[in-house]
Design a protein around this nucleic acid. Structure first.
Lengths: 250, 250
DNA sequence: TAGTGGTCTAGACCACCGA
DNA sequence: CGGTGGTCTAGACCACTAC
């Protein structure tokens, strides 16, 4: 099943011509450095002027590339201080990919408890969603998550083992994506989520300490890195009696 | 919307506590014209150069304001042709606010059938979500929606009657938001959706021609206009056996 | 060919931050 | 204070569209 990243109406043909604006080339060069972890998360980049000299373009062109990277949440710019590689382990960034909120109060940080963690051969879903060969291995995590102390999510997380060496024997922190970035040099750029309403089967109900047939929200997420490779597949089952999934359309 | 924040400073030249960039003032001026429907949807704006002369700023400053309006989906710019007021009745814009997709195929246009349409006093939810006084009136629509010919949504739509004079006696098209724009001068800028999984009660099940207790997706949407006023509340009950709600996180 | 938006440059000045 | 990003300008040239 082909997964459409965006509206089906955006299938309009591209010019096909090999014209690439200068600022776009600068964007790609800087993106490559970020992907190669030349600059670490939190680190300050050279100033606009220095980059301009180094790359042999005007400061305005560098600026346009930096602004684009900032719009893509890869950089953070602060007037008077400098340009920094975005850190994905602060509170703000956690909620970038976590859209569940309590109905009434503001959300505290979600917490987690790992149930199982194994390195194994991928099943059919994992092969398809992570674009894997049959001979590849995956690391698969099952865990429960809590919001404001209340059990609300059971999820299965699968990643290609080759991209995460030693992952299966690690202590798993609450914020996975910062671990991906700091330990494996993998930055999650975007994630595509597909939501459905389901009735819990017996196993799911037991995990979530509720009764079979309860309505729950299923979130099927594929996360991709800076080079648009799928690097994580996550299937979350969420109880939404006291929570909701928040989506802002603009 | 990021650009219509709660900046307390006014457009008055230079105040010492708040600083308002020139391009931001231009943005606001142009936004006002869009809100006042000085330029109609689909219409071409004057060129950058003409606007620059008229407003007494440089072309680059106009450009920055136009780019910001384009980023907010209010304008569409086409190289070699001009800058146009975004039309919200073409296929692209429909899917901007409609995130349900068939699991397997690409989505055709959704269709609708109105069940009831009344003008009445608001209930407590409507008063709260639309920020209404007890004496106000609302227009309330119940309808069913179909995707690829299949019944999948039952929804209730409520709008303040004062903003939509004569609405209750109109023929209702499939794409409501284009009607809002063309007949009432109201442009939907953003919408906030809250999703939950629910079990259908008897009435909902009957409407959707399925059985009581079926799991379904409830979408609670508040849509706001260019001035950030809530102008529509919509509660949709969606069957997701063959559909999913698509959400792209970046 | 004329007119549009898109890119690129160079330089001036402003607002903000930290030492 | 010096250094950073943010704004603003003026002008040149490029790519695209319509006629």
């Amino acid at each position: 099943m082909e997964r459409t990243g965006d509206d089906p109406t955006t299938a309009a043909g591209r010019s096909e011509i090999g014209y690439r604006p200068l600022y776009r080339q600068v964007y790609d060069k800087l993106l490559k450095r970020l992907a190669d972890a030349v600059w670490q998360p939190g680190q300050m980049l050279p100033s606009e002027g220095q980059l301009a000299v180094e790359l042999g373009v005007s400061q305005g062109t560098v600026r346009k590339a930096l602004d684009a990277l900032t719009a893509d949440s890869l950089l953070i710019r602060r007037q008077g201080r400098g340009t920094f590689v975005a850190e994905h382990d602060d509170q703000q960034s956690v909620f970038r990919f976590f859209k569940l909120r309590p109905d009434r109060a503001g959300a505290g940080m979600p917490t987690s408890r790992v149930i199982t963690m194994t390195e194994t051969s991928p099943n059919a879903d994992e092969r398809e969603n992570l674009d894997l060969l049959r001979t590849a291995q995956v690391v698969r995590i099952e865990r429960l998550r809590y919001l404001d102390g209340r059990l609300c999510i059971a999820e299965t997380i699968s990643v290609p083992a080759v991209l995460f060496p030693g992952f299966a024997r690690m202590e798993i922190p609450n914020t996975l994506y910062s671990l991906y970035a700091t330990r494996f040099g993998i930055t999650i750029a975007t994630a595509n989520e597909r939501l459905k309403a389901i009735s819990l089967d017996a196993r799911q109900a037991q995990l979530l300490e509720t009764s079979t047939g309860t309505a729950a929200l299923e979130i099927d997420r594929i996360a991709v890195d800076l080079e648009d490779r799928p690097v994580e597949w996550r299937l979350s089952i969420c109880l939404t009696q006291l929570l909701h999934y928040n989506s802002l359309l603009r």
